[in-house]
C-alpha cells in the first residue's frame, strides 16, 4: 500500500506548541499585571489610598485609626485587640459594651465570641459595628 502522506508536511515538534503556550502565558501575565495596576489606580482615584502614603517618609509612618464609616472592614477572624487598635478605641470599651466575660479578652476572636454566645458570626460582627458606631456617636446599622 502506497504511503499517501505528503512528505513535505512535517509534524511540528511538541516544543513548538510549548513555545506557543509559553508566549500565551506571558501575555496573560502581562494582562494580569495591567489589571493589578488598574485595580490600584482605581483605589487611588477613589481616594481610598492616600497619595501621602506613597511618599518614602509616609512609608515608615504609622497609619491613623479608622473612623465610623469603615466599620464594614470588621470580620469574624479579627481579635478584639486588633479591632480596638484599628479604630483607636479604649481596650475595655467593647468588653463593657458587649459584656464579654471571657478572660482571654482582648485576645479573643469575633468568631470565638460568637460561638461562646451561641450567635451567628454575622450577628456578632453587627454587634461590634454598632458598638463602635455608638462610640463615634453615629446611628446604629
Amino acid at each position: 500500500m502506497l504511503n499517501t502522506m505528503d512528505p513535505k508536511k512535517k509534524r511540528r515538534p511538541i516544543s513548538y506548541y510549548i513555545k506557543i503556550a509559553l508566549i500565551v502565558l506571558g501575555i496573560v501575565l502581562v494582562v494580569l499585571f495591567i489589571l493589578l495596576v488598574r485595580n490600584y489606580l482605581m483605589l487611588r482615584h477613589a481616594n481610598l489610598i492616600s497619595r501621602r502614603e506613597l511618599s518614602l517618609s509616609a512609608f515608615v509612618q504609622k497609619h491613623g485609626p479608622l473612623g465610623a464609616s469603615e466599620v464594614g472592614v470588621i470580620h469574624s477572624w479579627m481579635t478584639f485587640d486588633y479591632i480596638n487598635r484599628l479604630f483607636g478605641i479604649p481596650q475595655d470599651y467593647l468588653e463593657n459594651q458587649l459584656q464579654i466575660s471571657d478572660s482571654h479578652y482582648p485576645n479573643l476572636t469575633l468568631g470565638k465570641y460568637a460561638s461562646e454566645n451561641n450567635i451567628d458570626t454575622v450577628v456578632a460582627s453587627h454587634q461590634v459595628q454598632n458598638a463602635i458606631l455608638k462610640y463615634f456617636n453615629q446611628p446604629a446599622l
Binding site: 490600584y40 483605589l43 489610598i49 497609619h63 479608622l66
Partner: peptide, 16 residues
C-alpha cells in the same frame, strides 16, 4: 500600601 483593601489583590497573587 493598599491597607484594608488587601483582599482585593489576594486572588491576583494566587493566579500570578
Amino acid at each position: 500600601v493598599v491597607g484594608n483593601y488587601w483582599s482585593d489583590f489576594s486572588n491576583l497573587f494566587t493566579i500570578i
